[in-house]
């Protein structure tokens, strides 16, 4: 089967899954249907010639599903009923969505057509990667050698977001569970 046709099918499936995620009432079902969207995304990555990202997407999707189920299970997992006034909100939002989609259709005409990427920078990486780095996985050689400083910065972004999550959770610990991290005892 043609790859482009398959990608259309997968994208339509993802759109349906995302719509169900947004509109369903039960929160646990919403979380599970976003899991379906994520696994389909991983399949799309596999067809697009990116096995690295497909592996990462599958593994990350499992962990994010566990986190989201942690957030929704055991608490009242029913979506909040819309008030009467929010119908106006919905309608305005939908009108603007339509306008944005029309403009996006014209904007995408000016992009490079699908299947013919601009390879100005990547040609250099593909030509010199094996000699300069010695790694046969070119994605890894871009991440960890040509653009190693970017990766360093992104690891620091991860550090900041994780320590932000910790800072939010820590105040609670100081109140009740002082034995989890000894950082709290120093204060």
């Amino acid at each position: 089967m043609d790859v482009v046709f398959l990608l259309h099918l997968l994208l339509v499936f993802m759109i349906i899954g995302a719509f169900i995620t947004v509109e369903i009432k039960n929160m646990l079902s919403a979380v599970i249907s976003i899991g379906a969207v994520g696994f389909t995304l991983s399949m799309a990555f596999l067809f697009l010639g990116a096995p690295d990202i497909a592996i990462t997407q599958v593994i990350v999707e499992i962990l994010s599903l566990i986190l989201l189920i942690r957030a929704t299970v055991n608490v009242d997992n029913v979506a909040i009923e819309e008030k009467g006034e929010s119908v106006f909100h919905n309608r305005t939002a939908l009108i603007f969505v339509g306008i944005i989609l029309v403009f996006a259709w014209f904007a995408f005409q000016s992009l490079a057509p699908f299947g013919e990427p601009l390879m100005r920078v990547s040609d250099y990486y593909l030509n010199n990667g094996l000699i300069m780095v010695g790694a046969t996985n070119f994605v890894t050689s871009v991440i960890l050698d040509f653009r190693a400083y970017d990766t360093f910065g992104e690891a620091m972004v991860l550090f900041v977001s994780i320590s932000g999550a910790f800072a939010i959770l820590r105040r609670w610990k100081r109140e009740q569970h002082k034995d989890f991290l000894r950082i709290d005892r120093e204060h």
Partner: peptide
């Protein structure tokens, strides 16, 4: 071969997305 540069950028952004998701879930539970 397909373009390796966007793949390299997306690979890190997926994991960072997981970090921000953990941050948002922590905020929501809090």
């Amino acid at each position: 071969a397909v373009d390796p540069l966007p793949q390299a950028l997306v690979l890190t952004s997926i994991v960072i997305g997981l970090g921000t998701l953990a941050l948002m879930v922590a905020m929501a539970i809090r």
